[in-house]
Simulated scan of single mutants.
Amino acid sequence: MEIIDIINKTNAFLVEEFEVAPESITPQADLKETLGLDSLDYIDLVVAIEGNFGFKVKPEDFQGIVNFQDFYDYVIARVKQKELV
């Protein structure tokens, strides 16, 4: 899967799942603030990632994720890792 496809797919499910305007999702925007995430929303986010990309997410994976670029980098790395298996 190409990087741009991963980003587009990620943005599509974030817009749908968290009901945010597509233009509010920019690489430097704060993930938690933009999506209005609370602790339960993180569970929804994990379920969405796992359902859309087919890999398991660990809670500690989110520790270094601050903005959307961090989030994209994480998803891209995991998808690429899965493709190698």
Rank of each mutant, 00 (worst) to 15 (best):
N67G: 03
F13Y: 10
N67E: 10
L40I: 15
D38E: 03
V47H: 08
K80S: 09
I43R: 10
V15I: 15
P22D: 12
M1E: 07
P27R: 05
D30N: 13
L84N: 12
V79A: 08
N67A: 01
S24F: 14
I4Y: 05
A21L: 02
A77D: 13
I4F: 00
L31Q: 12
E16C: 03
P22M: 09
G51M: 00
D73L: 03
V85C: 09
N67F: 02
E23W: 05
D70M: 10
K9W: 02
E83W: 10
F71W: 11
K80Y: 12
G54P: 02
D70H: 11
Q81C: 03
D44H: 12
T10I: 01
E2N: 14
A12Q: 15
V20S: 12
G51N: 13
N11S: 07
V20G: 07
K58M: 11
V15H: 06
Y74P: 08
T26H: 08
K32H: 10
D30K: 10
I25A: 07
D73N: 14
F18H: 10
I4H: 05
E2Y: 11
V15L: 13
T10S: 11
L40A: 12
A48R: 02
E2A: 08
I25E: 06
G36F: 08
L14Q: 01
I3D: 15
Y42R: 07
L84K: 15
Q69F: 00
I7K: 14
F62C: 10
I65F: 13
F55A: 05
V46H: 06
D44V: 02
A21N: 10
E50S: 09
E17R: 15
K82C: 01
V66G: 01
Q81V: 12
K80V: 09
V66P: 00
R78W: 00
N67K: 05
L84R: 15
E83Q: 14
I3T: 15
E23Y: 13
L45Q: 01
D41C: 12
G36Q: 09
T10C: 02
D38H: 03
N11R: 15
R78A: 00
L37Y: 04
